[in-house]
Design a protein around this nucleic acid. Structure first.
Length: 538
DNA sequence: CGACTTTGACCCGCGC
DNA sequence: GCGCGGGTCAAAGTCG
């Protein structure tokens, strides 16, 4: 646990890199085999760490490097472990220098081997860069295609409604209802987006974020949409507040507005916490509290105040059955950089939301409401991650309250071939899975980029299987959350979340571990597509 | 004084 | 149409 915490802390501090790095290669398991299980380190992290010139990690890993010394020679001979081998360089070099018995020939061979591995590493990294670029281009193209399709559908429906509706006021309302998405789908915007995609030197994730904003919410940072920032309190209604009628026309009508990217998903996380709150690193302001039916504990409503107009909200409530369980709900996408402490949670839950949304694409017509498990036929325990499309929102529940033994909980049957984590999951999910793989020390899950045509169907199964079948996912998620919770001393920092007068369980959560500006901040993550993280009330 | 919490009122969707 | 419940608003109060 301490190790996981340390790694996650490191992940936070190295957030910028991690978010720009694709998921670990499938041969990670092979690469990790060069050290004993206890010495395993995510190899790609090490490589990038080396290249980034950050030496502090060296000292922290000095002991592990020493542990690897004895094995360095034999390990070096494995050409398939190039990435990881570089992490042993210091130990290897030290071993070579410390042992005068090595003859020159052996030294030369080892150095040659080292150089070869360096070269191979460079080659692999360039390949990785290329793949990342291609991936970004494909994502952009896919999104643009989806947007155009949605735009066409919208215009069709708009035309239909204009002809069928006799009431002028109703028609006007319809037009208003469609405003957010129509504005986002404007041709001018399309052109601009095209330019963004093709010309912008931003990272893939940044492109994705911009695209997501165009799709799901009026782009908050768009000069033509400043009203959304100024009108921040209303943003939730404009992008589909539960009580908002604006997106309701999709109900019972065409499925165009129910297109997955426009649907609102929830990610529900149940976490056991004696503390009054879960510190997720964000800054929240309480704007309401209600007594929910069937629960003696009030439900508190919070709004993200880290940026003006940030549409993210969360609900916090204790479980009626077990008051040590905190059920917290996040909704919406941050429109601002997140501190590292918040990034882990945001990324994880966004990934879960993305999974859910992707999965709900093809299953929206299936009767899932009464079924707590989205895929009841799965042969895996689904107690830790449950997908549900129950009204009004599809919800994914991550139950972190159960004390799972990762060894025992490995799927009784091997995951099906589809239990992969497709990259098109908005990128982040794959990254997070990569991170989780690191922290879970799992054999690498194959990351398969599916073709667009087979995306959704496979996605549903893949994601569900990946989550439901792999308790380590939520175990690592729990580790991440416990890092946030445990690593955050109960203080009322600059976030201003003073709970002294909070006589309820409304925890607010706000302790921020702010780093200097830009350090470890994920530029893209706040705009994750439909990242609605819900600590659900079930 | 600004930021935050509290809390009653209000809005809206939904079911009957 | 009405009532219920979830979600939000906004004025008043609190705190540092």
């Amino acid at each position: 646990m301490d190790r996981q915490r340390r790694e996650l802390t490191f992940l936070h501090s190295r957030g910028g890199f991690l978010r720009q790095s694709p998921a670990p290669p499938p041969d990670q398991a092979i690469a990790e085999s060069s050290c004993s299980a206890g010495d395993r380190k995510p190899p790609i992290r090490e490589v990038d760490f080396f290249s980034s010139g950050n030496r502090s990690k060296l000292s922290s890993d000095e002991e592990e490097s020493k542990n690897c010394k004895g094995r360095s020679t034999s390990t070096l001979s494995d050409p398939g472990t190039g990435l990881n081998l570089l992490s042993l360089n210091s130990g290897t070099t030290a071993a070579l220098e410390d042992d005068p018995s090595n003859n020159d020939t052996e030294m030369r061979m080892l150095r040659l081997e080292l150089e070869r591995l360096h070269e191979e590493n460079r080659r692999l990294r360039s390949m990785l860069d290329q793949i990342t670029k291609n991936y970004g281009h494909l994502q952009a193209q896919l999104l643009m295609a989806m947007q155009k399709q949605a735009h066409l559908n919208q215009r069709e429906q708009q035309r239909d409604e204009m002809t069928t509706m006799s009431s002028p006021t109703k028609s006007a309302q319809q037009l208003m209802d469609l405003r957010p998405t129509c504005a986002a789908m404007d041709n001018a915007n399309d052109e601009e987006k095209t330019r963004e995609v093709s010309d912008s030197p931003t990272t893939t994730m940044e492109v994705m974020s911009k695209e997501s904003d165009h799709i799901h919410t009026p782009p908050l940072n768009h000069p033509n949409n400043n009203h959304n920032i100024e009108d921040g309190d209303r943003t939730s209604q404009s992008w589909g507040s539960p009580k908002s009628p604006r997106l309701e026309p999709s109900k019972g009508g065409d499925e165009q507005l129910a297109d997955p990217p426009f649907r609102k998903a929830r990610v529900s996380v149940r976490a056991r916490s004696e503390a009054p709150s879960i510190s997720d690193g964000c800054q929240w302001r309480k704007y309401g509290q209600k007594m929910a039916k069937g629960n003696p504990c009030p439900r508190a409503y919070y709004r993200c105040t880290m940026a003006v107009g940030c549409p993210v909200r969360k609900q916090v409530q204790r479980c009626a059955d077990d008051k040590t369980i905190l059920i917290t709900t996040y909704e919406g996408n941050h429109n601002h950089p997140l501190p590292p402490a918040a990034t882990a949670m945001a990324n994880t839950t966004s990934a879960a939301a993305a999974m859910l949304l992707s999965g709900s694409t093809t299953s929206k017509d299936t009767p899932t409401s009464a079924n707590p498990g989205y895929f009841p036929s799965l042969p895996y325990p689904s107690t830790m991650a449950t997908l549900s499309a129950s009204a009004p929102f599809p919800t994914i529940t991550l139950d972190l309250t159960q004390n799972h033994n990762p060894m025992q909980l490995f799927p009784r049957t091997p995951p099906p071939a589809s239990a992969t984590f497709p990259l098109p999951l908005h990128g982040y999910a794959a990254q997070i899975m990569g991170q989780l793989q690191h922290s879970m020390k799992l054999p690498a899950m194959p990351l398969v980029q599916l073709g667009v045509g087979q995306r959704h169907a496979s996605l549903v199964e893949s994601v569900s299987a990946a989550i439901a079948s792999d308790p380590n996912f939520t175990t690592a998620l729990a580790a991440a959350i416990s890092t946030v919770m445990g690593g955050a001393p109960p203080r009322n920092g600059p976030d201003g979340n003073s709970n002294a007068n909070n006589n309820n369980n409304n925890n607010n959560s706000g302790n921020n571990h702010f780093l200097p500006a830009g350090v470890g901040v994920l530029p893209g993550s706040p705009q994750l597509p439909q990242s609605c993280t819900t600590f659900s009330t079930n």
